[in-house]
Nucleic acid binder design. Structure first.
Lengths: 107, 107
DNA sequence: CAAGGTATTATATCTGATATAGTACTTTTT
DNA sequence: AAAAAGTACTATATCAGATATAATACCTTG
């Protein structure tokens, strides 16, 4: 049975996050659940990995964070993609299409 | 312009090596050159990375090494895939097909 | 009020890839 | 024949992303 190990996902976390934030602002836990859902429950992004990715993206000005004013479900920090982040997403998405072609030749 | 960064290859080096050794025994430098050629000169596997991969595969009994008797081009160490290595290749190859599908949904 | 769900952060460790450097032998060029 | 370029492999230190583990804290449901 084929598996989806973290080795095969490594390096794609930021791209997955940017893709979702391109659609709408989301908070951390929501991103984790959405990724699980969209992968048809095949991939569970670890929370620590997600938050590490978000901190990285914020430090690179690809994403901005702001606190929401919810009173239910705990206080949520929302993440919003920036212009820099949109550009980075396009680039990473092209890189993926490209690397898929090369890897299909090599594997 | 799309790029093939090491981040996107990471985790696939062992698989590329196993694929080539499945076809025939090869020595290190030959593997580097063959991968460059088959990628249409798009991917240059670093020698240090290759030799690290080979050491890993040998320690896992996926590959066996033996010295050739060449007198030209330096003394060559040949690598040969084992039954364990053949099984690992099949597994990793399935994992790649599978992860491609999932990643296409998520990226 | 306990259990479970939601939400985020800190710290240490692991692994694969890389930079850098070194050794050593062979072939080609001048 | 010496220099340059190519072939072949190894050692050491460092880096980045992912993970384990754990801690904190608030809210909802039974």
């Amino acid at each position: 049975m084929a598996k989806l190990t973290s080795d095969l996902i490594r390096g794609h976390t930021d791209t997955m996050v940017l893709k979702l934030l391109q659609e709408r602002d989301m908070y951390g836990y929501e991103l984790v659940k959405e990724i699980y859902k969209r992968s048809n429950k095949e991939y569970e992004l670890k929370e620590v990995t997600l938050y590490a990715s978000l901190r990285r993206l914020v430090s690179e000005q690809c994403v901005e964070a702001y606190w929401g004013d919810e009173t239910r479900g705990g206080r949520r920090k929302y993440y919003s993609i920036t212009k820099v982040g949109l550009d980075l997403y396009d680039e990473k998405r092209s890189d993926w299409d490209y690397s898929k072609k090369i890897l299909d030749k090599l594997l």
